[in-house]
Design a protein around this nucleic acid. Structure first.
Lengths: 227, 227
DNA sequence: AATTTCATGTAATTCGTTACATGATTCC
DNA sequence: GGAATCATGTAACGAATTACATGAAATT
């Protein structure tokens, strides 16, 4: 079994479910594509991959990543290990995907879970979103209480820090409210088919029901590693 | 010297600068009063206090916390160690307070620094705020770039996650802008006197210059430990 | 030819938590 | 007198980073 990181394991399985990859690329996707939910170092990633293999959830395949097709056809390819999800791995990931629980709504866990909502069933999405929300509301209450008790003893900067902190949390609650409402509105559930093939070409239009937001992004390719 | 946590060490020294305390209370203040910048466990706090003592920055005093005055006057008081900042400790903290550098604007470090802005010189506050801001702007640029590169490959949830993440960062930048402007406006600098006595009763009115925000908090005392 | 980026790994170290162990004090 | 909370500590463990070590491929 092996109690590996949880969030890293989850994210790796989720990314590999979409398509096989080698470690280096995996790490980049962890930072960038899969928005922001921390950068893991190679010293963490590679050993993690090893244990996932040991668990039978991944297999290592030598060389020839998809893009490499031409180059790979030539003789001696070595190093560059591509990891592919096994059937058991897929199954295990589905299990993780359907699991909801208190840990699920903790900060980092939540981000990871949300990032894979595209493969998560509507019901589960709901539970996670609502769990997260009540988690934050609970947090807010504590903050308010503590603020009420201590406000006069605190200097202005400390107060300002708390105010900003609380506002951030309140903002996330509003965000969750929007999301939950959208979920409720989008009355179709997609993806109740565990173990299907990798991904049937995304880029489609409407996903269940996300709130629409303004869109502004100029082209500007540059480096990786957001952090 | 001993390379202890940095942020915990800093926060402990800062809190003890205001008044002596014992470990248990210290921890509560770390969670609540000093808004939100994580809860350290006793398993972290107590050993840390030990090394601070070993460094000569704190001294342990037996019993009789300020509130205990009556009870303490009675005979056998034991346990309940009150920690007091030494002169060297004060000096060391002033040093830490005046230090600015890349680490200073990292997420958790920044919160800790900000929490003690009340004791920080205006110039230093400025550098820290501006450093933080450019740190975030840099982060934003990376996010925008990566988003521009990958947007069509990402599903709606991932996109939404990134959007929300970016908005959070943008929001903090605006906050910092306000703060920086206020600092610039508030042309007096308080506290350029390192090593003064504990605290000359706060509760005063205007601090340098913080932006004024709406104020709403009902009374509601309850538990501790925000997290 | 040299530098940068890709690519994989290991060992030591840091930071922090959990679980455990203990006991006093306060509240009901 | 029993429970909750205050109070202090230690040992084992966990998660992840840094520094190190190595080398191939692409770019200039």
């Amino acid at each position: 079994m092996s109690r590996r990181s949880g969030i890293l394991e989850f994210a790796v399985l989720g990314l590999l479910r979409e398509s096989p990859m080698h470690g280096y690329e995996l790490r980049k996707r962890l930072n960038t594509s899969l928005g922001v939910f921390r950068a893991f170092s190679y010293g963490t990633l590679y050993p993690c991959l090893k244990t996932l293999v040991a668990n039978g959830w991944l297999i290592e395949e030598p060389g020839s990543a998809p893009e490499d097709a031409l180059a790979a056809s030539l003789a001696g390819r070595r190093a560059k290990i591509v990891y592919r999800l096994t059937a058991e791995g897929k199954e295990h990931f589905e299990e993780l995907l359907s699991h909801t629980g208190p840990d699920t709504w903790e900060d980092e866990h939540f981000a990871a879970r949300f990032a894979f909502f595209g493969q998560t069933e509507r019901e589960v999405r709901m539970r996670v979103l609502e769990g997260r929300r009540s988690r934050l509301e609970e947090r807010l209450e504590k903050m308010r209480a503590s603020l009420a008790r201590t406000r006069e003893r605190l200097d202005d900067y400390t107060l300002e820090l708390q105010r900003h902190g609380m506002e951030s949390v309140e903002r996330e609650v509003r965000w969750l409210n929007e999301l939950i409402e959208s979920e409720r509105a989008g009355r179709d559930q997609r993806r109740s088919d565990p173990g299907g093939p990798a991904r049937d070409d995304i880029t489609s239009g409407e996903t269940d029901g996300l709130p629409r937001h303004r869109d502004d992004t100029g082209p500007d390719p540059s480096d990786d590693t957001v952090k």
